[in-house]
Design a protein around this nucleic acid. Sequence first.
DNA 1: ATGGCTGCAAAAGTTTTGCACTTCT
DNA 2: AGAAGTGCAAAACTTTTGCAGCCAT
Lengths: 145, 145
Amino acid sequence: MVAKKQTLKIDRKVLSSAGLRMTNQRALILDIIRHRHLDADEVYRQARDKQPRLSLSTVYRTLRRLKELDLVDELHFGEAHHHYEVKPPAEHHHLVCLGCGKIVEFECSLCPQMKKEIAHRKGFEVARVEVQMTGYCSKCRQGRE
Amino acid sequence: MVAKKQTLKIDRKVLSSAGLRMTNQRALILDIIRHRHLDADEVYRQARDKQPRLSLSTVYRTLRRLKELDLVDELHFGEAHHHYEVKPPAEHHHLVCLGCGKIVEFECSLCPQMKKEIAHRKGFEVARVEVQMTGYCSKCRQGRE
DNA sequence: ATGGCTGCAAAAGTTTTGCACTTCT
DNA sequence: AGAAGTGCAAAACTTTTGCAGCCAT
């Protein structure tokens, strides 16, 4: 996994430039939420397979810090707790299946235009746009007819 | 307040057709979140001014039930707990100021097109689109220069 | 009258914090 | 060495639940 080593190096640099350190725990947690959308407890359970002594508070602290550094995104689905993913190279949004819980990412070509329009209309400086769609995926639709 | 009596009547009908009742507590809670975006605790505190014996669990139960009936919308801002508003006549979205916390509603003319496009591209039946923007309102921008 | 609703208290679930010890740089 | 990070336990906060009595229909 050359790619994994490479991203680790980059992440280490980001941490370091904020006076923070790269630890085994942080590397593991970053690895687990890369390309996934998990909540703190799911991260915790997966992480314990590899580092049995890891604590849940470390997971929370780590996720919070990584989010402050903009290394991870915090997502707000309908569940009263947060989900996390490593910040993706391109801005994307989420489509959640109400049947099976599957999460699909999509890019939104209309968003920049929408953002500009709303910013102008409301006098805001818009920092971020988050679009979330919910519905049923093709598999779950079959079961509902 | 003729209008208030009118909406009460309508809400009562919705409840009734689901075999549920309109109580003082429910009327008050509906009244409080009409045109506002509050979390359960804020609703609770405001409601106690008028009904001191009201309990927080009733607030939670009520909000949940009203949401199931589609009378209120549950919003997911970045705060690990839910906010609620009475379901508005037209679908709208939210712009949150990171400076003062103000919430501004906006309508999105591009959304139907976006919804159709994503639904087609991903094979989903999309039930709902939620757009959330964050940024700084005109007042808060001045303080940040 | 009767089935839904409420208040209260207790439990369950999520996130944060204090502190002594460990680890990264 | 020194500052940052971790594990553990306890606290704080959010939401749900069980139950006895109350109230809308």
